[in-house]
Amino acid sequence: MQSLQTLALGTAPTDIEKAAQILSDGGLVAFPTETVYGLGGDARNDLAVARIFDAKGRPRFNPLIIHLPTLGAARQFAQFTDTAERLAAAFWPGPLTLVLPLKQGHGLSPLVTADLSTVAIRVPAHRVAQAVLTAFGGPVAAPSANLSGKISPTSAAHVAAGLTGRIDAIVDGGDCAVGLESTIIGLDGAPTLLRAGGVPAEAIEACLGHTLQRGGDGPKPNAPGQLASHYAPGAKVRLNASGKEKGEVLLGFGPCEGADLNLSPAGDLVEAAANLFGHLHRLDALNADTIAVSPIPETGLGRAINDRLRRAAAPRPCP
């Protein structure tokens, strides 16, 4: 692909307007959300959306999430059921994505939905994301701002390391607070957990008053983040490690002797989620053969952390 000059933007009003103008012109802008940095393009522009897939090296069958500043704006593109309205009222703005039937006349590029009859929508809470989306005034398709399958970015430096020369601009809004991608709930049938993420499934089930069905393991993704090998560092990943072996570095959790980095010495899953991708980036830079990871509880945000780690440890597809 053609090499681009990637602009470094801040969060001043003039920078936000510049980012919005680049999006309006069909360009690609990385910007922070509370979860991870997203790589944004106009979701109505076929060429802009195609450039997202090209910049990331992302397979075209993997759908994208569109980002909007308000629930009202989201209603223009999807059919909202009573259940969708209840979840949006409870968790938007925030790290929750809803997969909903497309509304007639939506105007989105078919590349966004991978030709499915549904669309994934999120209203992010991050003030910079909100500013960019409001200034742009339309739907922004924005997967994580990294090369496909690699560790997700939680800082502008992570984005720059992977996508400089491939995108038009990066808005530096500091580190992401949540540090895990959004939870994805499918609502084109019974409410279904398609991807664990920044909102624990328990909180969603408490809001709905019943348990969620589990999905997302079919042969073709119906939402982002479902590929078996994903979020992967260059090193191999060994899970549920009681310590490190020769040639390994150790990513600890809770009280853990000999950890090279610790997600949360206190065993706090919120802190661990916020640190996960940043710590993986730092350990991967040490060029060890393997990153060993201490056991993580399979509760609350631990489910989302373990989901990312299992995909990071999965066998890599042949290049």
Rank of each mutant, 00 (worst) to 15 (best):
residue 35 T to Y: 09
residue 22 I to L: 15
residue 46 D to G: 04
residue 24 S to D: 04
residue 56 K to C: 03
residue 53 F to S: 04
residue 41 G to N: 01
residue 39 L to W: 13
residue 55 A to E: 01
residue 56 K to Q: 04
residue 34 E to C: 08
residue 27 G to Y: 05
residue 46 D to A: 15
residue 35 T to M: 09
residue 38 G to H: 12
residue 29 V to T: 09
residue 45 N to R: 12
residue 34 E to Y: 15
residue 36 V to N: 07
residue 27 G to C: 00
residue 33 T to E: 01
residue 28 L to V: 05
residue 50 A to M: 04
residue 35 T to E: 05
residue 45 N to L: 00
residue 40 G to Y: 14
residue 55 A to L: 07
residue 52 I to M: 08
residue 47 L to Y: 11
residue 38 G to Y: 13
residue 33 T to L: 07
residue 28 L to Q: 11
residue 23 L to Q: 10
residue 34 E to N: 09
residue 35 T to L: 04
residue 24 S to F: 07
residue 51 R to P: 01
residue 57 G to H: 12
residue 25 D to C: 08
residue 54 D to Q: 14
residue 43 A to Q: 09
residue 48 A to C: 05
residue 24 S to T: 12
residue 26 G to P: 00
residue 57 G to R: 12
residue 20 A to G: 02
residue 42 D to P: 01
residue 21 Q to H: 13
residue 50 A to K: 14
residue 26 G to H: 06
residue 26 G to W: 05
residue 36 V to R: 09
residue 29 V to A: 11
residue 23 L to C: 06
residue 22 I to E: 05
residue 28 L to H: 13
residue 22 I to P: 00
residue 42 D to W: 15
residue 31 F to Q: 04
residue 34 E to T: 09
residue 45 N to Y: 11
residue 24 S to A: 15
residue 45 N to I: 02
residue 50 A to P: 00
residue 24 S to M: 05
residue 52 I to T: 08
residue 23 L to R: 09
residue 44 R to V: 00
residue 55 A to H: 11
residue 33 T to I: 04
residue 33 T to W: 15
residue 44 R to N: 10
residue 33 T to Y: 14
residue 48 A to D: 05
residue 51 R to A: 14
residue 32 P to W: 11
residue 21 Q to S: 14
residue 27 G to M: 01
residue 42 D to V: 03
residue 42 D to M: 01
residue 34 E to V: 07
residue 47 L to S: 14
residue 56 K to W: 12
residue 32 P to H: 13
residue 32 P to R: 13
residue 36 V to T: 15
residue 43 A to D: 02
residue 52 I to D: 06
residue 30 A to W: 08
residue 48 A to I: 00
residue 55 A to I: 02
residue 54 D to T: 12
residue 30 A to T: 02
residue 49 V to N: 10
residue 24 S to E: 06
residue 25 D to T: 06
residue 31 F to I: 05
residue 22 I to H: 12
residue 50 A to S: 15
residue 20 A to I: 00
residue 45 N to E: 00
residue 26 G to Q: 03
residue 40 G to M: 05
residue 30 A to R: 07
residue 30 A to F: 10
residue 32 P to E: 11
residue 32 P to Q: 10
residue 46 D to C: 03
residue 35 T to P: 02
residue 36 V to D: 06
residue 57 G to Q: 11
residue 43 A to K: 09
residue 29 V to M: 03
residue 36 V to S: 11
residue 49 V to E: 07
residue 36 V to A: 13
residue 50 A to C: 04
residue 49 V to C: 07
residue 23 L to N: 10
residue 45 N to Q: 09
residue 43 A to S: 07
residue 41 G to I: 00
residue 44 R to L: 01
residue 49 V to Q: 10
residue 52 I to V: 13
residue 31 F to C: 05
residue 21 Q to L: 08
residue 51 R to V: 02
residue 52 I to H: 13
residue 51 R to D: 10
residue 32 P to S: 11
residue 35 T to D: 04
residue 20 A to W: 11
residue 20 A to R: 02
residue 46 D to T: 10
residue 57 G to L: 07
residue 25 D to F: 02
residue 57 G to Y: 12
residue 49 V to D: 06
residue 29 V to Y: 14
residue 36 V to P: 02
residue 55 A to K: 10
residue 25 D to S: 15
residue 48 A to E: 04
residue 26 G to A: 06
residue 50 A to L: 11
residue 47 L to R: 15
